[in-house]
């Protein structure tokens, strides 16, 4: 199955490069560490054999799309990455004509750290679902929602309630939640890998980098770290496609998805909006309804 996908990816990448449909193809090559794949940029049709596909291709390649403003780009995407593209299109950051999307139905990416812990440097041949990244466990869109070429048969989508973790977390008391937040935030070293890995974090100047107004002190005092996490997440409200790239990028293994997933759940419950499905639909915070709920008002 995976071999077939790789073959299809290479064939299609070669074709679109040779026919000059695109100038560059963004995909994955073999990484230098166990359980790793690494983003690669192919411009020469003869290099397409570098492209691979396996269950370690966890990066969201949509983050690179804005790096090539005057090029036509071919990109290999999973379900979540394709939603990022849709979300970027909805925010008028991309032109559909400049992108050629090679979609790959995805069965979830495997967590490198969990595998290393369990198997060390010798990868097992078959891996169970419990080694999926947390972000992939609740995935609702394994198949790309937008593509020009699909490399394999679509996989079965999950039909379950997509936010069991958020519901579970909300059952905790206020102070328990605060304690959890403090513990997670205190690990932060402010390397901003979460921001940089996110396709939606494309601001020219991030709020932490401005010094007039100075929203936030530098340094690692706990409230500074917490405010960073609150605002980073809030800026994703109605925009986050739940790909989990932020959490996977974090070198300190901080859990951050629980923040954005709460917002996503609210966006779905309050505004009946699912992000990254329809590029024509205005993002939820860019519009309103006369009948939005307002029970929270005093």
């Amino acid at each position: 199955m995976a071999d077939k996908i790789v073959e299809n990816i290479r064939k299609e990448a070669k074709r679109i490069l040779e026919e000059k449909i695109v100038d560059i193809v963004i995909g994955f090559e073999k990484g230098t560490l166990p359980y790793t794949a690494s983003p690669v940029f192919i411009e020469n049709p003869d290099d397409v054999d570098k492209l691979i596909w396996n269950r370690y291709c966890h990066n969201n390649l949509a983050v690179y799309l804005r790096n090539f403003p005057d090029k036509k780009i071919g990109i290999i995407v999973k379900g979540c990455d394709s939603r990022s593209i849709v979300a970027l299109m909805a925010e008028k950051q991309l032109t559909r004509e400049n992108i050629y999307i090679i979609g790959v139905p995805c069965e979830g990416m495997l967590d490198k750290n969990k595998l290393l812990e369990e198997f060390g440097d010798n990868p097992p041949i078959e891996v169970k679902e419990e080694f999926l990244y947390p972000s992939c466990q609740y995935c609702e869109h394994k198949n790309p929602v937008i593509y020009d070429f699909l490399t394999g048969e679509p996989v079965q989508e999950k039909e379950e309630e997509p936010y069991p973790d958020v519901v579970e977390f909300e059952k905790k008391t206020l102070d328990e939640r605060w304690k959890y937040f403090q513990e997670e935030a205190s690990k932060c070293i402010r390397c901003y890998a979460c921001r940089q890995a996110c396709p939606m974090c494309y601001c020219e100047e991030c709020f932490v980098d401005t010094n007039s107004p100075k929203w936030l002190d530098p340094g690692i005092d706990l409230p500074d770290l917490q405010v960073w996490h609150i605002i980073r997440a809030y800026h994703q409200a109605g925009r986050c496609v739940d790909c989990g790239a932020c959490e996977r990028a974090c070198p300190m293994d901080i859990k951050i998805l629980w923040l954005t997933r709460k917002l996503n759940k609210d966006v779905r419950d309050l505004f009946e909006f699912e992000i990254g499905i329809d590029p024509e639909k205005v993002p939820p915070l860019g519009t309103f309804s006369l009948y939005d709920k307002e029970e929270f008002l005093i």
């Binding site: 977390f169 909300e170 709460k262 006369l290």
Partner: peptide
């Protein structure tokens, strides 16, 4: 005309999120 409608959406999300992280 519409400023408060946009605000309503933002505040609803912010308030829920602050409570989610354990803030009163």
């Amino acid at each position: 005309n519409t400023g408060n409608y946009y605000a309503r959406r933002r505040f609803a999300l912010l308030k829920n999120m602050l409570s989610h992280i354990g803030f009163e």
